[in-house]
């Protein structure tokens, strides 16, 4: 008989792994204030959509990500052929992502939804980085303001974020 289990508690499993390796406890980010929430200003079918993904996606010809708190990012044209997308990431099993980048970068679905009219249009560029960054400070001070600036400059009506 099929058995269902609750969602994996990755925070607890990381804690167990680190203590088993003899390392100090890894501290995940805990936000102590509620997040902001701004409503969509128009229906999805009229929205200009942005995509930001942290699965280590790059385009062949670009510099790949390194694995030591890489806080760089890549500008990926949303016209990029799916077969030109590549993956560099240390913290998850990239087997499926390398076969089909859509599992962490849903570009074909987004292009399809624009074509069928469910979404208005896609921003010219998506942004990608390698999310295995242990320094929350670097994310907060470098990447977050940069992507916020891009979202405003690109005149996006919504942003879809795809972590791993």
């Amino acid at each position: 008989m099929a058995q269902t289990r609750p969602p994996i508690d990755y925070i607890q499993r990381t804690r167990d792994q680190y203590s088993g390796l003899g390392y100090p406890v890894y501290r995940w980010v805990e936000s102590d204030s509620p997040p902001p929430l701004v409503p969509l200003k128009k229906p999805l079918s009229q929205c200009r959509v942005g995509l930001i993904a942290s699965g280590g996606i790059y385009v062949t010809g670009q510099v790949a990500f390194h694995f030591s708190d890489d806080v760089s990012y890549r500008v990926v044209s949303t016209d990029t052929p799916t077969e030109d997308l590549r993956i560099a990431h240390f913290a998850y099993d990239v087997t499926d992502a390398r076969r089909d980048p859509n599992v962490v970068f849903p570009i074909d679905s987004l292009r399809g939804l624009v074509k069928e009219g469910a979404l208005g249009d896609l921003s010219e560029n998506a942004y990608t980085f390698m999310g295995g960054i242990y320094s929350a400070r670097k994310v907060r001070e470098k990447l977050a303001p940069e992507f916020a600036r891009r979202a405003v400059e690109d005149q996006l009506d919504l942003v879809l974020l795809v972590p791993v």
Binding site: S31, V38, L40, I52, R140, A148, A151, V152, L156
Partner: peptide
Amino acid sequence: LIARAIESAGVPT
């Protein structure tokens, strides 16, 4: 953290 920063800038995420 990035989602919160983008939303703070006025763009829904």
